[in-house]
């Protein structure tokens, strides 16, 4: 049986799924392992509430954020929020059990 899938090969390594995040990832890999925490500028944060969340959230959690990583982190956060939205819109009763451990 012949394979029908068209392969679209791109330069290897950067794996996030948006071009911007690929670029950010490749840049991020070259950074020193002891890079100082560095946050996006307030000007960037004003342009999109999610930019502000990325900056404020990483600061609040004392997580480093090299500017080169910002786009990829934001992309991934957008994805989580989008998928979380799918879950959020599903109606469940108030007493639905959130306990994660389940037995047969």
């Amino acid at each position: 049986m012949k394979r029908k899938i068209t392969r679209k090969t791109k330069p290897a390594r950067g794996r996030p799924s948006a071009k911007a995040s690929v670029k950010a990832s490749v840049k991020g890999r070259t950074k020193s392992t002891k890079a100082k925490p560095h946050h996006a500028t307030p000007a960037t944060a004003k342009s999109d509430p999610l930019d502000a969340l990325v900056v404020a959230g990483t600061q609040a959690l004392r997580l480093p954020l090299d500017p080169a990583w910002h786009g990829s982190v934001k992309f991934n956060l957008q994805l989580i929020l989008h998928l979380g939205g799918l879950v959020d819109e599903f109606p469940l009763p108030d007493d639905a059990e959130p306990g994660p451990v389940f037995y047969a």
Partner: peptide
């Protein structure tokens, strides 16, 4: 980086 950025986003 692909792992790190997803983990930071998850946080």
């Amino acid at each position: 980086p692909a792992v790190r950025d997803r983990l930071i986003a998850g946080a």
